[in-house]
Each structure stands twice: as C-alpha cells, then as structure tokens.
Design a protein around this nucleic acid. Structure first.
Lengths: 158, 158
DNA sequence: GAATATTACTTAGTGCCCTAATGGTTAGTG
DNA sequence: CACTAACCATTAGGGCACTAAGTAATATTC
C-alpha cells in the first residue's frame, strides 16, 4: 500500500508528503514546464529561454539587470542563459555607451521573426492543459498571493 | 517604464510575461522552495532531500523506484540525491535479497531522530508564509487540478 | 582629486532535473 | 535450456538556479 493519491484529508498528518505547501506546487510547476518542452523544442528554446524572449518581445531591448528583475532570477542565472540565446542568434549583447557596466540585450532579426511563430504558443498550451482564459486568470491570482507571501517572508528575514 | 507589476488585465497581450500559465507558477514555486532554505539549512537538507525524508518518515523503508514515483521525479534524479542523504548518514542503501535489481532505502537512527526536529517545519513554514490550514488545502486543490491536466496532456502525447 | 562605496556583470562551485545510454537482474517464450 | 524482453538503478551530459567571490566601471565622500 504505497498509494498516496487517494487521500482526501491532506492535513491529518502534517509531515505527509501531500500536506506540504511546497510539494504539490513543485510538482505542478515541473509538470507545466515539462508540458512546454515539446512545444518549445521546435524553436530550440528551453522554458527559461522562452521567458527571456517574451520579455524582449515586449521591450525589444533590455539590460541584463532588468531581465533578471522581470524574470525574478539572479543575474548569475541570466548571464549564461542569454549567452545561449546569443549562440542561437536570437539576441545580441552589447555594452552600453553611456555606462559600460551595463550589457544591453537586443533582439536580432531572427529573434524578432520568431515572435510570429511564438504567438501560437499560449493558445496551444491552454488547449493542451485544458484551460480557458478564466482558468489562467484564477491560477494567476492564486500564484500572485503566494508570491506576495514569499516576498513578505523574505522581507522579514532580511 | 519597465514596470509589469501594476497590470490588472493579464490577458490583453497573450505573449506578455504575466499572461503565461507557466510564469507565475514557476516564480511561486521557486519562491516557496527558497523560503524553505533557511528552515532546512540547520538540518543540512535541500528541499528535494527533505521530500525524500518525508516519504521515508511515512514509510520507513522504500525502494528507489517507489521514491521516484512518489516524488514524481526521474530515477536518475533520485539516485544522486539519495547518495547525498547516505553521506549525511540519514539513510542506508541496500540491495534487496529477493530481487537484486532493487535498492532499498532505509532510515538510519539519525534519520529517524531527525523527524522530531522536522515536526516543527510545516507549522514554521505556514507561519512564515502567512497561510492557515484552509489556505494550504485550497492551494493543494488548485495544484491538484493542474497536475491532473498535465498528466492528461502527457497521456495524450504518449 | 584620491580613497571608498556601490553597481553591473561574470565565474566557480554545488545541487537539481531531464534525456539517453549502459550494465545487471529477472521473467517470459520457443 | 537458451534467448529475448522487461525492469531497476546508475552514469554521462546539458541546462537551470542558487551563493560567494571576483572584475570593471561609476558614484560618493572627504
């Protein structure tokens, strides 16, 4: 009896796997990112690379710092990630003239072209996961609350 | 104008970062796992290692295969993870007598002892994230729906 | 104007997560 | 009985995410 899926009372044992705040969230996140894989593979993007491209399709050109802030990642994570996008010829990296500490990331023509293909992805993913616009909005609201709690906790911790 | 936090209409631009099913979920998941860090650090556990320990506190002894299934991870992910737990002297790994393909993972006395300390963690985390039992239950329900959708999509894909 | 602090990015190191390939072990079939 | 198929665990390799430490450029302070 190693089944755990049938539990309807997730909190009778606080140390049960199903009772953890983190577990279902982590599984769902990994699962959804995994579901993107086959959709992103044809355009040679991983999921976080796709997120960088989304940011650039919105803003055309962004400094590294801003990409990290928008994606809520450490600069040290974004740095090699953007280098791979450069290797794919989707972006270029150039030092700013006014402040040579800053590296500006800009879409190439190839990267800009890719947007047309990418426009189908949100719809594809919603269909794939059987979600509608309201479902996405609801999920977004719940996640936003969690993120706010995490931020507050991090603030309190320093 | 690089702000994105103020958006109240997440779906007016389907390619906007905030409109993605994946993005808020990934940020929330990373954030919550990050919030566990300072709580797990005193007992030398990372988050996925903690999940393995939870499974073992529930079952005392599990084959590798079963840990991977319960945690929804690939066996190749669990293998080095459990080795680190063995290095910490929290678990032992022994080949099954009846089927020598199987590696049984068992709690050591140290690992069993650790449960007492760990019993405080769920409460600590709920307090830290400002959640109550109902909040956890609600989050769990929403995540369960997502996971079911992901499973259905994976099933359809083959 | 020189010393100090801050900022932007990168590198190194650890761990997680996946896919693909490998090596044993068991079970099923002619 | 030998052969094949299935199964379990591991290794190898790529990418992601974090922390800590390092380099270079800009700001600040005296």
């Amino acid at each position: 009896m190693l089944e755990s899926e049938g539990s309807t009372e997730p909190l009778d044992n606080p140390l049960a796997l199903e009772s953890q705040i983190c577990f279902a969230l982590a599984v769902a996140s990994r699962g959804v990112i995994g579901a993107y894989r086959s959709v992103l593979e044809p355009i040679s993007l991983t999921h976080p690379q796709y997120l960088v491209m989304l940011a650039l399709w919105q803003h055309e050109k962004l400094p590294m710092r801003e990409i990290a802030r928008l994606l809520r990642l450490e600069p040290a994570t974004v740095s090699p990630l953007v280098k791979r996008l450069e290797a794919l010829d989707y972006v270029t990296r150039t030092r700013s003239d006014s402040d040579e500490r800053i590296v500006e990331v800009t879409l190439t023509d190839t990267g800009r072209e890719l947007r047309k293909t990418a426009e189908a992805i949100p719809g594809t993913m919603m269909a794939k996961l059987g979600m509608d616009v309201d479902g996405v909005r609801e999920l977004h609201a719940v996640m936003q609350k969690i993120i706010a709690s995490v931020d507050a906790a991090a603030e309190a911790e320093g």
